[in-house]
């Protein structure tokens, strides 16, 4: 996983609640079997019209939000489908951190696994950050995971809470599987104590 410590960059705002992962990455692209190259499909149906031209009214098409690294969005961001293609697309487009009043469970978990930092702030703080963004000329903010702070363009600092274990993993870019395999003995012991009754190989005649 890509490690994350801090980033300073342009902020984009999509001030809508309940943005679902079907919007983040529409299903017509989920047939790709690659792990990379997802950025160009981000918010496809919202970003581009039927002829593939940018929709001038869509937030990410505003010049002030070009090349943004930080996304500010409404509550319950990432609801719906479990597709990890959503964080892959946000990351591929250039986003490194997301800030919203809340995230959907599976989406937030998926973000942590790929090094895209989902930050929850109280609704009022998100509103204050959105208000601090210059929608004409663009604004930069700094997200610091080590310090758990967001610094807005005027210099005000917002603190956020973050799961200590996930923070450790993100700061160090740790591989979850390698971490779990350190406890292989415990897994084996569990399996011995709990043999279970499911055997898909026997069922399918593959054993």
């Amino acid at each position: 996983m890509q490690a994350f410590t801090r980033t300073t960059g342009r902020v984009a705002v999509i001030d809508r609640p309940d943005i679902d992962t079907d919007q983040v990455i529409p299903k017509q692209f989920l047939k790709r079997i690659e792990r990379t190259g997802w950025g160009e499909f981000l918010f496809w149906d919202w970003r581009l019209d039927e002829d593939g031209n940018p929709r001038p009214d869509f937030e990410l098409n505003q010049p002030a939000f070009a090349d943004a690294k930080i996304l500010l969005a409404g509550r319950n961001f990432g609801c719906g489908s479990s597709r990890e293609h959503a964080p892959w697309s946000l990351q591929g487009y250039g986003f490194e951190a997301l800030i919203a009043p809340s995230f959907a469970d599976i989406f937030r978990s998926n973000c942590m696994k790929v090094g895209l930092v989902p930050i929850e702030l109280p609704e009022d703080d998100v509103r204050a950050l959105i208000d601090a963004v210059d929608n004409e000329n663009g604004s930069e903010m700094t997200v610091d995971l080590q310090e758990q702070t967001i610094t807005e363009p005027g210099g005000s600092v917002f603190e956020f809470s973050f799961d200590a274990f996930r923070k450790h993993c993100l700061l160090n870019g740790l591989d979850d599987i390698a971490l779990t395999l350190q406890h292989e003995d415990a897994i084996t012991a569990y399996e011995k104590a709990n043999p279970g009754r499911i055997d898909t190989l026997a069922l399918t005649g593959a054993s």
Binding site: R83, I106, N110, I177, T180
Partner: peptide, 12 residues
């Protein structure tokens, strides 16, 4: 679960 977790379950 997401695809990273699918890989995690496959492996562990």
């Amino acid at each position: 679960i997401g695809t990273s977790e699918v890989e995690h379950v496959l492996a562990t």
